[in-house]
Amino acid sequence: MAELAEVNVAVPRAPLDDPVMAGFANAFDVVARLAEAAPGFVWRLAAESGHAVLATSAGIEVVVNVSVWRDYRSLHEFVYRGAHGRFLPRRRDWFAPTPPPATALWWVADGRRPTVGQALARLGFLRDHGPSPQAFSPVHRFTVDGRRCR
């Protein structure tokens, strides 16, 4: 069996403890708990503090989210149809334009938990080579066996 790994990055408009980021920072733990309770959720990367993970991608400091889901439908339902979706319209308040694509998906063996470095490498692969079974986007997805989804 395989599970769907996901990484997304966003360029914060200010340090996470800045008042500009308060809405994001205050919602982070709530949204993380909602994800953990969502159908199809398997795992998420958590910073030692429990808050957002910061890393450098393409020379820019970014907030990094890495998670694993049972399938794309579960991820999609959480991101767009649940409480998380109500935060999406505010992302421009908290995040500057991010070099696209900002999200990459790929299949992992059951129990495999990607590191930040592995996830950013998949995102870099998608940026450099476009969608493929190695790394794909929510719009241009691939099945576990490497076939393009219709």
Rank of each mutant, 00 (worst) to 15 (best):
E6N: 07
H84R: 04
F28E: 14
V20D: 10
D18M: 02
R44G: 01
T56N: 03
A5L: 05
P39A: 15
R127G: 06
A10E: 11
G117W: 00
A121Q: 06
R150I: 00
C149S: 10
T98S: 10
L105I: 08
D128K: 06
P12D: 02
L88H: 08
R86A: 07
V144E: 13
G117D: 13
L34N: 15
W69D: 02
A32L: 11
R73E: 14
G50Q: 12
G23E: 12
P138C: 02
G82E: 11
R81V: 00
E48S: 04
L75S: 07
A55F: 14
A35L: 14
L123M: 10
A135Q: 05
R33T: 09
V79Q: 05
L45M: 10
L54S: 07
R113H: 09
F41W: 06
P39I: 11
D29Y: 05
R92T: 10
L16V: 12
F142V: 04
G124M: 00
P138N: 03
G130E: 00
G130N: 08
N8S: 06
V79M: 13
A96I: 00
A135M: 10
S49I: 13
A46M: 01
R73V: 11
L34G: 12
P99D: 04
Y80N: 04
A38R: 10
P89C: 09
W106G: 03
T143H: 06
L16I: 11
G124D: 12
A32M: 09
F28W: 07
C149H: 14
P101D: 00
A25V: 13
M1D: 03
V144S: 10
P100W: 09
Q118K: 11
S49Q: 11
V53R: 03
E77A: 05
V31Y: 02
S74G: 01
L34V: 14
P101H: 12
D29M: 02
G82A: 01
S132M: 07
P39S: 15
P131T: 07
V9S: 05
A96Q: 12
L105K: 08
V53Q: 07
R122S: 00
F87H: 02
A102V: 02
E6M: 05
L4D: 12
A10Q: 13
G23P: 08
A10K: 01
A119V: 00
C149W: 13
A47T: 06
V79H: 10
R150E: 07
R92N: 06
V9F: 12
A2I: 09
R122E: 00
G50T: 13
T56L: 05
N26Y: 09
F24Y: 15
H140I: 04
D110Y: 05
R73M: 08
P138G: 03
G50M: 13
E48C: 02
W69S: 01
A22D: 15
R122K: 15
Y72G: 02
H76W: 04
D145E: 15
L4I: 11
P131Q: 00
S67K: 10
E61T: 15
P19Q: 10
L75V: 04
H51L: 14
D18A: 11
A38M: 11
L120M: 05
T56I: 09
V20E: 13
F142P: 08
H84K: 04
N26R: 05
Q118E: 15
L120V: 07
V30N: 01
N65W: 01
V9Y: 02
